[in-house]
């Protein structure tokens, strides 16, 4: 199919630690079509940011392929990667840490343009930076302010403007609204949606917040300890989660209404360590459905109904 923009195949990232091999990402597969938003959700430490950083090639994969428009990013040489960076950009949770505090907002937004030597005359360069400020809703009068003078929402707009500078087609958004107050969060989410429509962008949207993920995504992948446990079209997933972890995760979200009663599934204990994980299903120790096979064999992600991918041995046995 031609509308596939990104395909991730059997992606693995293991970190060497003092205590052993940490399986941060452990055999992940997914496809993202052009102009859609894929939501990647899961609790802290499950490997979401690592996937984002692998796609940007900020770190090297241990194994697997990341095909962007059919080309494996992991195999590109330096020069090819430089070209690729124009197409794929990332926005982080706290742009503060990724912005240079001594640089004005104008210079920060212009930096990717200077690094990639996009313009050779000052006028076109300045025009482009101001245009970017307009695009993300930053008043031009803020051009000469510094990151610490801005509130979180505006700083995030700077982060987005930088990411947009080189006209990318694909953005990794790593918890872009998690540090923001709700009224500002809504402004940034709406901006992301407008930019997507206007420029035909494709998003990998990473978040631990299920309400945000549901709002923004077309498809969703739910991760647990380095693996995708469920993958589906967004509405279907929320209507009827199939993996026992997804069910618990969705039921844990507090609902801002006093008229609904949710049957909450309280998980016992904490997420186990990703270092030298035991064989079998990662979720088995906390799973209400787990049987012997779950502690021996790792369940594969398989299509249990049209469009519904679930990695669980017992998914058909629930009622």
């Amino acid at each position: 199919m031609s509308d596939i923009i990104l395909e991730v195949k059997n992606l693995k990232k293991y970190f060497k630690t003092k205590k052993g091999l940490l399986h941060a990402v452990d055999g992940v597969n997914f496809i993202i079509s052009k102009s859609e938003t894929m939501g990647l959700v899961g609790e802290s430490g499950c490997g979401k940011s690592t996937i984002g950083r692998l796609i940007l090639r900020l770190i090297e994969a241990t194994e697997g392929e990341i095909l962007f428009e059919g080309k494996d990013i992991c195999k590109l040489d330096k020069k090819e990667m430089r070209e690729m960076r124009k197409k794929i950009q990332i926005v982080f949770q706290d742009p503060y840490s990724s912005l240079d505090g001594r640089r004005s907002i104008f210079d920060s937004i212009g930096e990717p343009l200077r690094v990639q030597k996009v313009f050779n005359d000052k006028q076109s360069y300045e025009k482009r930076v101001y245009e970017l400020m307009d695009t993300v809703g930053l008043a031009r009068r803020l051009a000469n302010t510094y990151p610490h003078e801005l509130d979180g929402g505006r700083r995030q707009r700077v982060g987005i403007a930088r990411a947009m500078a080189l006209n990318p087609s694909f953005l990794v958004l790593d918890e872009p609204v998690s540090a923001l107050d709700v009224s500002i969060q809504a402004q940034i989410l709406n901006l992301m949606e407008e930019l997507q429509k206007e420029f035909g962008l494709t998003y990998l949207f990473i978040s631990h917040d299920l309400s945000v993920i549901k709002h923004i995504s077309n498809h969703i992948a739910v991760m647990y300890l380095g693996k995708i446990v469920e993958k589906s079209e967004c509405k279907e997933l929320f209507k009827e989660p199939l993996h026992p972890y997804t069910q618990a995760l969705l039921s844990a979200v507090p609902i801002p209404s006093i008229d609904v009663k949710i049957d909450r599934i309280i998980l016992e204990g904490d997420v186990p360590s990703p270092i030298n994980p035991r064989p079998g299903c990662r979720f088995a120790p906390r799973c209400r459905l787990a049987g012997d096979i779950c502690r021996q064999e790792t369940p594969e992600l398989r299509e249990v109904r049209p469009g519904r991918m679930v990695a669980c041995h017992f998914v058909e046995n629930q009622n």
């Binding site: 609790e43 802290s44 631990h208 995760l249 909450r264 309280i266």
Partner: peptide
């Protein structure tokens, strides 16, 4: 995390 939050709220 939300599942841990659920434990604490409970």
């Amino acid at each position: 995390d939300v599942t841990i939050q659920a434990q604490v709220l409970e």
